[in-house]
Nucleic acid binder design. Structure first.
Lengths: 209, 209, 209, 209
DNA sequence: CATGAATGAGAATTCATTCAT
DNA sequence: GATGAATGAATTCTCATTCAT
């Protein structure tokens, strides 16, 4: 029960912003905090502070702290899924597809490192969690695209060294995506250059003229 | 996409005797829980439950929850540092050293996955944290060993593809160590076989006779 | 043992026109919710939902959640007071008056169970609460009417068993009004028939010729 | 002005009491608060205050606020069930049994009014709630005992007025148990005397010699 | 050594209420 | 009038930590 006689209270500074903009700002802030402190160590107050809102007001935009994480992951996976699908259905050569996938990954890691990290860090914990089934589902779809491109490239004889595709996929995936933990664009090599070198190593040679 | 992580083993250790044994059991349990649930989501009670002890009693062995994490990381890094040093000071060829480093990593991921995961997961968060400076320090020492071996190998002309050592180091390190999220010994390939294939890809060829 | 209580009717009223009509709809909805969930467990949003209005808009009709409860009780007690006064000033015989009071109670419990329940459930809690003094006041007036009728009936020698009027009043009142927790018109006996039987028991005999 | 002497620090006053005693004290306090303010309006802090404990410490004794309510109801219903069973299986006459049931009710209302009120007030809300099925179950058992005694008494021709047992049961039950809202022992009539009069009214006559 | 009771500092969440639009 | 956004105070519950026994 709230107090029967509320005090006048100091005039609250109402900054009326576009709700959609503020919603996105919340996701942006949450992703950053989740990535740097971990979901468990991020409080809704922390998130509120970042967007100059009281923590209680967050609940106008999201039903719970979990729902914020869910929204971050949904948006991230939707974007990644779309980009991935575009690359592998472009009709380009297998090696080109692999290169584009890696390059896109580096670009994404440069542009939205916190979203990538949030996804990576929370993936395991969310495995069976109700409401988060889409994470495994969408991840599997993306994985299938990578595996398909790598398989086609192997069948085309592109690789200098022969290893099972399951092994190669993991090596490529892990080497590529873990770069989010150190890659910062603007330092040394940009995304395209870095991707070029990674792909060269993966193939054991440079792209054929 | 994202590397899967091993399930928590459900074996409550029951050690009544040697305090040192119990201390080690606590670290094992803690590492497993930290790796599977995250440090923040692991309660001292959870740890106590695993070793059949009340949470209050943990404080006879460790000063705090943080101290348990610290002990886990110290032991892990000490062991890893020792093994790493042994490999790179064995007087073997550069490629042999790199191969041994990778093989040792796979072996370690098979034997102590939870320690590896704990280290990886908490590394970023612990960056500046007081009391955890040793993590960055020891990590740097190990990194130096890997970089040295890779540099020597590059100078020996072992690699099919030429890339800056800083780039190659990260690719190799990330591809290798992230395998902890999916590698389970006893399935398909063992540590040695897997390491062999990884190294072949890294070099773009198989070891010269 | 304990009296069961009626289920909440799920009919969201949609009144767009007359403010007075909407005001009344709010009271109906509020009474239903207060009766079924309790005042404390009813949110202003719940009330708004029932009348298809946002909770903020309720404040155009009532100054506070408390004010809604107050209005419910005021209206209920006013109606009950009026009906009671009419019965006891009708110039009928004491037993007739008692019978009419009981019958009216059953009728009211059939027609407006939620208002009766709200009154009963919140009565104790509202005892000393400022702004709710009218509850005790009006209740006392109604009680006086019942006691007067019972006293007159006792003096007329209507009762088979002799007990102090204070005791009889409470027995009669409690037995009668608590029926709201189980009485549903249309099942078995109607209000008049039920009142008849109740009164017969209260008197220890059936009404004389 | 008092000297600026440093505070001696807040020595945590550890009053080491028998846990079972404190547990019961919590239930006692909780029942009182639930009865007077309602469950929803009682905070765990309120309960803690009553037993000079911090609210967090309550969770050493009960898993949740709900669990406290559950314990109150379980204890209450167990005691009531036992007493009821003893009365109806004593081999006494039906009217004696009814009288004993009513008398016991008044005694209980005198001794533990808050438990009775808590039961009555929260009964409805707990209807379908998981974990509270025992409430309906135990209540039904007690109701059966009352109905059996009343039926037997009716068959023995004890009642001056004839009404369906379902009606009579409710009238008797409601009149009796609702007395908890006003009955305070030590005023005017004691439990036995009050029960005697209530029963006389219920029967329409005084017990046969 | 081990424990159970206790604490206090938060944590997420709820909700009556306000008010600019 | 109506609404949605915002608030702030309160609520239940959690948990690392302490400490007398």
């Amino acid at each position: 029960m709230p107090p029967a006689t509320p005090e006048p209270a100091a005039r609250p500074l109402r900054v009326r912003e576009d709700p959609a903009v503020r919603r996105q700002a919340i996701l942006e802030a949450a992703a950053r905090l989740f990535a740097t402190h971990g979901f468990a160590d991020t409080t809704v107050r922390d998130i509120g502070d970042e967007v100059a809102i009281k923590s209680g007001s967050l609940y106008h935009y999201f039903a719970s702290k979990d729902a914020i994480l869910e929204a971050v992951l949904r948006e991230f996976l939707a974007d990644l899924g779309t980009a991935t699908a575009a690359i592998v259905s472009a009709g380009t050569s297998p090696r080109r597809q692999v290169t584009d996938l890696v390059r896109h990954a580096f670009t994404l890691m440069g542009e939205r490192p916190y979203w990538v990290l949030t996804y990576q860090n929370e993936f395991l914990r969310l495995a069976g969690q109700p409401g988060f089934e889409f994470v495994a589902g969408e991840s599997a779809r993306i994985e299938a695209a990578w595996v398909a491109a790598l398989t086609a490239s192997a069948e085309a004889g592109d690789f200098a060294v022969d290893v099972p595709v399951a092994v190669r996929y993991r090596l490529v995936r892990d080497a590529t995506w873990t770069a989010v933990r150190w890659y910062r664009p603007g330092e040394e090599l940009d995304a395209a250059a870095l991707a070029e070198r990674y792909v060269a190593v993966f193939y054991g040679n440079h792209a054929a003229g």
